[in-house]
Design a protein around this nucleic acid. Structure first.
Lengths: 240, 240
DNA sequence: AAGTGGTCTAGACCACGGC
DNA sequence: CCGTGGTCTAGACCACTTC
């Protein structure tokens, strides 16, 4: 498997990255056909199954559509489905500049419910980071992240105005995030939330509570997000 | 591929069904280990890749967890993630009896926005089916389904009090549903909705708008659902 | 050390789509 | 008809976890 040893990245991921890059740089536009499994296999010198693995992954992300007998095509860009992305990644993938204001960044304790979500004892110390997310000057979301203070106490000092929390975890702590379980419901904005988001009290907002797991399967971040739903839509693709 | 010809079902799906059945019938409980790829390959007389395909699928459904080096285990049953299910399937998978009241079941026209979602001309005739979903006597959701009247005009006469719409489409029309794109936001209950759902006017409800596609890739159903969010939570698993 | 999942090969046949 | 994706084989090596 010589090609796999060039670097640590599996071949199917290198193929995915190559295609992603061609889409992001607009060399491939929505509706364009993506090279077939057989063609990718030839070009990248891998077997059919490997080329196939790459395309199946991109389809589940919603980046491409595959039609039996016809081919694989760049999907119309509804936003990435079912893909765990940081706010920073999310914004820049849409050509927007991320902008947020850190409201809270300190160590807290005595939040048994949050601790439980992370699989910790009730009185565990936690890092809490609360940020107001903006598009330009307009606020659209309020996000509170919680992490175990035991491991991650130093993130309170990280430059979160600039760098993404995901990136900090990866580069400073070597923690890779793998997936998130999310719980979505609707709730009414209370006084403080209403003021921060610039809506009336009692106004409906979308609430997303997520537990983010590392590649080791360990609950690492608990996030509660409140979103003005005129601005922010949650898009999902579910399969049967 | 003799085993594949016994019936039309692919081998990996037969393996999935076998495992699903053992989980649903409680022969396998959360935390129990599921047979390894190699064991499944032996037992079902398929290759490793096929056994693997089966387990990977079950993992993405959230039914099992896989840990490298350790094995595959039955997941704690948070509810099926990212799986397109009918209300009927959803309820019965949790041991509950589906209960709903059909409010509207007729052919309409002049809904250009809905028609557009289904990829139809603005004034197309549509089948509209509106149902109030109940748990016992308590309403928790209001769902309006729309289908192209050209193909599906007869579903207005289907016994939707009993049979699921998904099942009707499959058995009466031979249409298999494949995936859905959903758009989720929060909105305020207006007068009629508030009354039907038994909440105050202006109360926040979860709105899910979904376009359901057939295996042919054709937009087939457009559903707008409004959910009382204390009762109904949307659970998602997203991967990085 | 034994067993597990993750990646990969070099082919194969089938069903389907578009020409 | 040819090219496409969907399924499948019978192996292989690696990295990892558990013992």
């Amino acid at each position: 498997m010589s090609t796999n040893h060039r670097n640590g990245t599996p071949a199917y991921q290198r193929i995915q990255n190559a295609i992603r890059h061609r889409i992001e740089s607009s060399h491939l536009k929505p509706g364009d056909s993506v090279p077939s499994e057989r063609e990718l296999a030839k070009v990248h010198k891998v077997s059919l199954m490997t080329a196939r693995h790459a395309l199946v992954g991109l389809e589940r992300e919603g980046l491409v559509e595959r039609r039996r007998g016809a081919g694989t095509f760049v999907a119309t860009p509804k936003i990435q489905f079912n893909k765990l992305m940081s706010y920073t990644e999310h914004m820049s993938s849409r050509g927007l500049t991320p902008n947020s204001r850190v409201l809270v960044s300190r160590i807290i304790a005595g939040e048994p419910e949050v601790a439980a979500r992370l699989g910790l004892p009730p009185n565990s110390a936690l890092v809490k980071i609360e940020r107001l997310r903006l598009t330009g000057e307009e606020p659209f979301a309020l996000e509170a992240c919680h992490l175990p203070a035991g491991e991650f106490s130093e993130v309170v000092n990280a430059p979160l105005g600039r760098a993404s929390l995901f990136a900090t975890l990866q580069y400073e702590y070597g923690v890779e995030l793998a997936y998130a379980d999310e719980e979505v419901d609707a709730t009414a904005a209370d006084g403080r939330v209403a003021e921060l988001l610039g809506v009336a009290q009692g106004y409906p907002v979308l609430r997303i509570r997520q537990v983010i797991y590392s590649t080791k399967g360990k609950a690492t971040i608990y996030v509660v997000g409140l979103y003005r739903s005129e601005n922010h839509r949650l898009l999902i693709r579910r399969f049967r």
